[in-house]
Design a protein around this nucleic acid. Structure first.
Lengths: 217, 217
DNA sequence: GGCTAAATGCTAGCATTATTAGCTTTTTTT
DNA sequence: AAAAAAAGCTAATAATGCTAGCATTTAGCC
């Protein structure tokens, strides 16, 4: 009853399994309502964008995985490595938790990854003298060597991946992404609120200050 | 030897573990070279964009997971469900493999997911009369019902998530994403080529037609 | 000062997500 | 008709990332 073909084969007769009441071809209601995002009253282009974003994400991650593979790492591991570099340059001291929030991953997972990178000799962990609960993460000389060796190839690939962008589009895209991150954050809060309203509060008050609501990891 | 704090605690003495030759603070070479993507000869903004893309896409997935949760599904399952709807509307017949390539997932995984959706009564699978190896995927009436029930909430959340976009930015973003998907595809091919050049071909001929090269899933 | 509470990171166990390999059935090619 | 290819299924397995519980250090409070 789970394999249509098997069912048919077993029966021998072409008795098709309950043709599932022909679904209304254009039954789908709008998934967005702002007029700026509708064309001729249809959300077709909007759905297209949402889908394209996933498509791009898959490829963007694949490119990262490719860069990472060049120095023997998985995609996330590579992200952890360079993020240590960036945070170290900007903030002068990188802890496990700092990195975890930066990358939106759990502390435990960062622990696992940084331990592996330490074993590989790409990252060093020293106790932080100011707060000895903390660990100071740093890229080792060997770590920098690997990143440097990677750069020439990375440059070629990145040039192709972002080739179609003009300087203006590049700046605008950068700007748009910044705004979309913020608005997505707000959307997530609203979503959590709508999924789990604080009881006795039916009113669809837009933008609640903050709601607990269990959130998936 | 993997836990800096433990080592220290065990020793009692503050002997810090080999301070890891102070890494050059700005040793990182450029990761992109096109002048359109550089500002003052630095790739800082470009790195920022790459990072922002991951940040946004992570939240975009979280929003999808939230929508999905409303009808008791995981993020991918929801994507499979609506993709069946879209492909069915556009192409009139959706097979497992068609869906797999559309979503960039393996056929086996699509089989698993669609079987679950069938068990849940949201999707129907009938043997394709034209080619009986194939299965015709369809959203059931119940599936449409769930999607319709979801829509009002989805609309509110999507309006917030994409709130900052003007009509012009929306169209441009849509256009840019389309181009970036194509260029990313090309970047992946180049990357595969550079990782595994067909031997005896050292010349860095840009844009090879097509190379086999094992690719990670 | 001493007791409690909070914060940091670690380990272990597990859930989810998605792939590859091998099999059966049907279709296509020779 | 036989061989090769294509579609989808199952099983085993890999990668990814989380939660729970623990030890150590720090901060707050009386």
């Amino acid at each position: 009853m789970s394999d249509a073909r098997k069912t048919r084969a077993a029966n021998g007769a072409p008795k098709r399994a309950a043709p599932a009441e022909r679904a209304p071809l254009q039954a789908a209601p709008l998934t967005v309502s702002r007029p700026e995002l509708l064309a001729d009253g249809s959300d077709r282009e909007f759905r297209q964008l949402v889908h394209a974003l996933f498509g791009f994400l898959a490829r963007h991650e694949a490119v990262r995985a490719g860069h990472a593979a060049r120095i023997g790492l998985a995609g996330v591991e590579y992200s952890v490595l360079i993020s240590i570099g960036h945070l170290d340059a900007e903030e002068r001291s990188v802890s496990v938790n700092r990195l975890a929030t930066h990358l939106h991953l759990s502390g435990a997972f960062i622990t696992t990854l940084t331990n592996k990178l330490e074993r590989l000799g790409l990252v060093s962990k020293e106790p932080d003298d100011a707060d000895r609960r903390r660990v100071k993460l740093r890229i080792t000389a060997e770590g920098w060597r690997r990143l440097s060796a990677l750069a020439p190839v990375q440059r070629q690939v990145n040039d192709v991946q972002f080739g179609p962008l003009t300087a203006g589009e590049f700046r605008l895209l950068n700007d748009i992404m910044g705004r979309l991150i913020d608005s997505s954050e707000r959307a997530l809060k609203l979503q959590a609120f709508l999924a789990d309203p604080p009881a006795s509060e039916q009113a669809p008050a837009p933008l609640p200050a903050a709601t607990a609501g269990k959130r998936k990891g």
